[in-house]
Amino acid sequence: MADPAELAAMRRAISLAALGLGTTSPNPPVGCVILDRRGVVVGEGFHERKGEAHAEAHALAMAGDRARGGTAVVTLEPCNHFGRTPPCRKLLIEAGIARCVIAVIDPTSREEGGAARLRAAGIDVEVGVLADEAELVLGPWLRALRTGRPFVTWASLAEVDGGRSSLPDPLLAEVRASVDAVLAEDGQVFEGVRGGHGPGMVELDGLASGGSPADLLASLHQGGVRSAVLNYNETNATSFLAAGLVDQVLVYLPARSAGSGGLGFGPEEFIPARYELREVRKTNGFVVIRAERA
């Protein structure tokens, strides 16, 4: 069973993994922490971009010889295949890791998987450690694998009359910072994280939406997109909602002017049927609600 140092390291690895949101697709956002024999953190890293070093490689490079006899704590099962980078299970074995703590098994594992290969090499492997917490970051990627389309968030600005409009650029900048693509009301699709995704990512700029919502999302998924934001008003989002293609809604509720008593409307007005409230927070003069499809 994972000890307190390993649990703390896993939560740190989960936080590190979030730094890769929006830039790793179609690969998953993964974090890794290396503990030495005494349980002290000696290395850490996260997968930054597709085609570049994985989380384990970054963490092992930082740890150096201190990794020998230590523990690798990783949010997703180390990969077991050769691609643009060598298999992470091979790097861990060569580094002399004695134990590997894994949150989530990789559903895309090839052959017997990295965990099995690590065990075969004599490494103690524990799986399922803080898996629910790890899925706070891995969840959209895992959902995209199951559905064959990106994890979709409908983001909107609440209007006093009960309607919803698309987000203005300052608010959209916050939302797009952790997704692969943004679908705009004018039918265009563009990259979520500014600065691009690196080699192999689908070319999004100027891509017309066209076709049905399902066709568009399937096309984006095929091109490598695993998470997308609909920056739509209520009318334009209707077809996606009706088809069951929205995984969560994000609504910005403007605060009323000082002394007016708070919000001019309640969150319940903006949560669609079959969605459940998951988060309420305050940011820059807005109350933001997040609801997920039940």
Rank of each mutant, 00 (worst) to 15 (best):
A13Q: 05
A17G: 12
A18I: 04
L19W: 01
L19K: 08
G20C: 07
I34Y: 01
V41D: 01
G45A: 10
G45T: 03
G51T: 10
G51W: 02
H54D: 11
A55R: 03
H58Q: 07
A61Q: 13
A63G: 13
G69P: 01
G69D: 05
G69H: 03
A72E: 00
T75P: 10
N80C: 13
G83E: 11
R84N: 14
K90G: 01
S109R: 11
R110Q: 13
E111N: 13
E111A: 10
E111R: 09
E112A: 08
G114I: 03
A116M: 04
A121K: 04
G122I: 04
V125C: 12
E126Y: 07
G128H: 07
V129P: 06
E133L: 11
P140L: 01
R143V: 01
L145Q: 10
R149Y: 11
P150Q: 08
F151T: 02
V152Q: 03
S156G: 14
L157Y: 03
A158R: 05
E159T: 04
P168N: 04
P168V: 02
A173G: 05
A184R: 13
E191Q: 14
E191S: 14
R194D: 13
G195M: 14
G198Y: 11
V202I: 10
E203D: 15
G206N: 08
A208P: 06
S209G: 01
G211S: 13
S212A: 12
P213Y: 07
P213F: 09
L216A: 01
S219H: 14
Q222H: 12
G223C: 12
V225M: 06
R226F: 14
N233P: 13
S239V: 06
L241H: 05
A242T: 11
Q248C: 15
L250D: 09
V251W: 02
R256Q: 15
R256W: 11
S257E: 15
G259Q: 09
S260T: 08
S260Y: 06
L277G: 14
K282S: 15
T283P: 00
T283I: 14
N284A: 15
A291C: 13
